[in-house]
Each structure stands twice: as C-alpha cells, then as structure tokens.
Amino acid sequence: MTFESPHIRVKDLNVHIGGNHILKNINIDIPDKKLTSFIGPSGCGKTTLLKTFNRLLDRNKDVQIDGQVLVDGENIYGKDIEVTSMRQKMGLLSQRPFPLPMSIYDNIAYGPRLHGTTKKKELDVLVEHYLTATGLWDEVKDRLNGSAARLSIGQQQRLCLARGLAVEPEIILGDEPTSALDPISTQKIEELFLQLKDKYTLVLVTHILRQARRLSDYIAFLYMGEIIEFGPTEDILLRPKEKLTQEYVKGYIS
C-alpha cells in the first residue's frame, strides 16, 4: 500500500548484520501525521527497521545497508546527507528510559542548547512547555535541579519524550517504549502518543497487539525480516489477508 506524499518512504531496503540477512527487500510508506505500528514476533526485524530511519544502526561494525530511506523525499543514506541534522528531525524513545546524567531541567534544555538556544529565559519557557506537554510539570516543578535519575521509571520515560520533543522533531520513533513500564505509566505514555498524532508522524514498534490496536492508524506485520502485510489497523487485525498474519493475530505464532 502506498501514499502520495509519505513522510518516510523505504525503497528496496536490505540489511545484513554480520552476514545474516536481517531485513529483506523492505518497501513501505510511512504516512504523514499518522501513527504507524510495526508488529511481529521478536527477532522479526522490526526494531532494526526502526533504527535504519535515523541511522543509529550503522554505528555498528559488520552492518551493511542497501537501498533507500527517503525522509521528506531525501535519501538519508545519500552521499551529502548531514547525519546530525537529519537525526534531529526524529525523536527516539527507547525500550528503557535513559535520562542524561544531569538534572531534570538540563535534560530538557540539552537539545535546545545544542541547537543554539542559550538564553535562560527562553530555556525556562521551553522546559516548562515540554514538561507540561508530557504531564510532568506539576510532578517535578519543585525539583527541576534534582537528578533525573531519581525520577520513577515512568516519569523518566515521559522526561525522555519531553527531551525529544524539545528539539522540535517531525517524526517520533518509539521502540517498545512501554515495555519497561507499569500499567499506569504505560497508559500515560499511550495517551501522550494519541495527542501527538496531530502534530507528528509517529512510528511505534510493539509486540503488544492491543497496544497497536489502541494507538495505530496503520499496522505493518513483519516476519523473518520481511513485511508480510501492511494496511489500516482494522484490516490487519480483523481482516488479515495473509495466512501468516492471521496466525499471528490469533496468537498461533508469536
């Protein structure tokens, strides 16, 4: 299934890691300002696919990436691409939250400072804005200079989201961002994702089918490094065309 002007377009992507063919002939369009989920059994390549989007994958040795990933029509594996500014367009939320080793305030201010905002007043505004946007402001406003490592893990994950939003990305990549969280924190993150859909393009890797159903507009099902089926959420979960998808959705394979 294709879109007219997708935010990300993957063309004939093949990834080999240490001689293993991890992703096979991937072609997929990620629509603008929608939430697209990658589902599939563990080891199917969904996280690898996500990491090709901001080129975090090619920091490892023995990784060979062929094909194209076009973001806003520009191939991020092209020769003249500036990886640093390209990555800035994409926020990343990893499986476990990793606050930077500094205070809550500095965590949020880190990105803006890098990109040229240095005035204390402007930073104050930004910090309050993004902490409010992730529902953290009331919880942490009295200890902005406290260590980020002292927050609960759910708060840390929301802090990481706020930190990512503060560099004004266009795309947010979530790599099973709730897998380390308790149910209540998970719910908060999910609510945030639903709110963010208006402004950002979201790509979510998840192995929880119910989560994919609650959040996504589109779902891609991956199996053994291939995209088996891609379509609107209802179609994939309720009326899958492929036999493998049916079996996965019913829980026969996992």
């Binding site: 901001n54 975090l56 920091r59 640093t84 500014s85 990555r87 800035q88 994409m90 926020g91 990343l92 990893s94 499986q95 476990r96 990793f98 930077l100 880190y110 990105g111 890098l114 990109h115 990481c160 930190r163 990512g164 560099v167 990549l173």
Partner: peptide
Amino acid sequence: APTELSDATYALGATRWE
C-alpha cells in the same frame, strides 16, 4: 555505559563530540 545513552544523544541531534 549503556549504548542507549549514545542513541539518546544522537537522536537529539548531538554530534560525536557532544
């Protein structure tokens, strides 16, 4: 130190030096 720490800074647009 966890690799996710560098993933996080890179995703925020930091250079290797930063």
